[in-house]
């Protein structure tokens, strides 16, 4: 894929494959995906459980367990370095300082026996070599930045004294502590109530505008995607099946999976007479079919879909809207079928 000559991406992922070993055989959970993240851009990775969206983030940060997991890539380029080829020590330097991550459940990422203030301060002392006094001043400023009310008096409180929304604000403060260029947010609002979710989304949008950082936002919720993404990559069974700007994707969903997904959501803003359903389920990682992985659930599937894996290609050479589909991707099916038979 050749992107138009716009600003150089902050993060450029080429052909990333993450595999897991099940009973001695390696199966890919992420299959050769490529994407670039522009400065100050929010790219949403959206898909259902097991589509590989979280694995993509963990792979970028080198957090895939090595016992049964393997990450291969032609390049995960960040600030002129290939993250896939860094030593553990160099990678530790990147994590937090260059790229940081926010997880779904803040309680499992916070230490229950240390104060909130201590935990935010620790990141600053460790990564930025500040003195304790300096770090505490900075930590307090961060807690103010993420709008924790009366941050000063709550500095010495413990995680259990914070609500779910406030804990997620603390996690965001910690992620921002070292002014990273990129934030990977993995379902950061999924465990929260809708009014708190709205607040956290507003906060992330505001912080992104203020700091100029970029964000990869992982979610299964297309409503959340519509609320904050600039660009969207839809994932299915380890592949990016469609990628486009947020406006384009919702206005012209082209992959049959994207289209079906959008029509399966009951909406709160309008009446839905008939809810669309997608038959079947995502095949398990060790029993992926040949050809297009969505073919078995796809109403448009042809013989070629079951025989050959479609490539992710732009709808037309100039278009940033790319789709991985034989039928909808603008391919000459007659010619392809002939080729396949030869």
């Amino acid at each position: 894929m050749t992107a138009p000559a716009t600003p150089a991406p902050v993060l450029d992922v080429w052909n990333l494959t993450t595999s897991f070993r099940i009973e001695g055989t390696w199966y890919p959970a992420v299959r050769g995906i490529s994407f670039a993240l522009a400065p100050n851009e929010t790219l949403a990775l959206v898909g259902e459980s097991g589509c590989g969206k979280s694995m993509t983030a963990l792979s970028i940060l080198g957090l895939v367990p090595t016992a049964n997991g393997r990450v291969e890539a032609d390049g995960i380029m960040f600030e002129g370095r290939d993250l896939a080829r860094l030593s553990d020590e160099e990678m530790r330097e990147v994590r937090g300082n260059g790229i940081s991550m926010i997880f779904q459940e803040p309680m499992t990422s916070l230490n229950p026996v240390l104060t909130i203030g201590f935990q935010v301060t620790e990141a600053l002392i460790y990564h930025q070599n500040l003195s304790r006094a300096e770090a505490e001043r900075e930590a307090l400023a961060l807690l103010d930045l993420v709008k924790i009310p009366s941050a000063k008096s709550r500095f010495r409180e413990y995680p259990h004294q914070f609500s779910g929304g406030m804990r997620q604000r603390v996690m965001i403060a910690m992620a921002l502590a070292c002014r990273p260029k990129v934030i990977l947010a993995d379902e950061p609002t999924t465990a929260l109530d809708v009014t708190i979710q709205a607040q956290i989304l507003a906060l992330l949008n505001e912080l992104k505008a203020e700091t100029g950082m970029s964000m990869i936002f992982i979610t299964h919720n297309l409503g959340v995607v519509a609320a904050l993404a600039d660009r969207v990559a839809v994932m299915y069974a380890g592949d990016i099946v469609e990628i486009a700007s947020v406006g384009e994707l919702f206005a012209r969903p082209t992959h049959p999976y994207t289209e079906a997904l959008l029509r399966s959501i009951p909406r709160s803003d309008r009446d839905t007479a008939e809810l669309h359903t997608i038959p079947g389920a995502v095949p398990p990682i060790h029993r992926m079919p040949k050809g297009c992985r969505f073919a078995a659930r796809c109403p448009l599937a042809q013989d070629i879909c079951r025989a050959m894996d479609p490539p992710l290609e732009p709808l037309d050479p100039e278009s940033p809207h790319a789709v991985r589909c034989w039928v909808r991707g603008g391919h000459d099916l007659a010619a392809l079928t002939e080729d396949a038979n030869v």
């Binding site: 989304l201 507003a202 949008n205 995607v225 406006g247 709160s268 803003d269």
Partner: peptide, 16 residues
Amino acid sequence: ASPVPDPTARKAFERI
């Protein structure tokens, strides 16, 4: 506060 799958209807969440 309920997100809807429509980017043209982005709301100002700040009021919540």
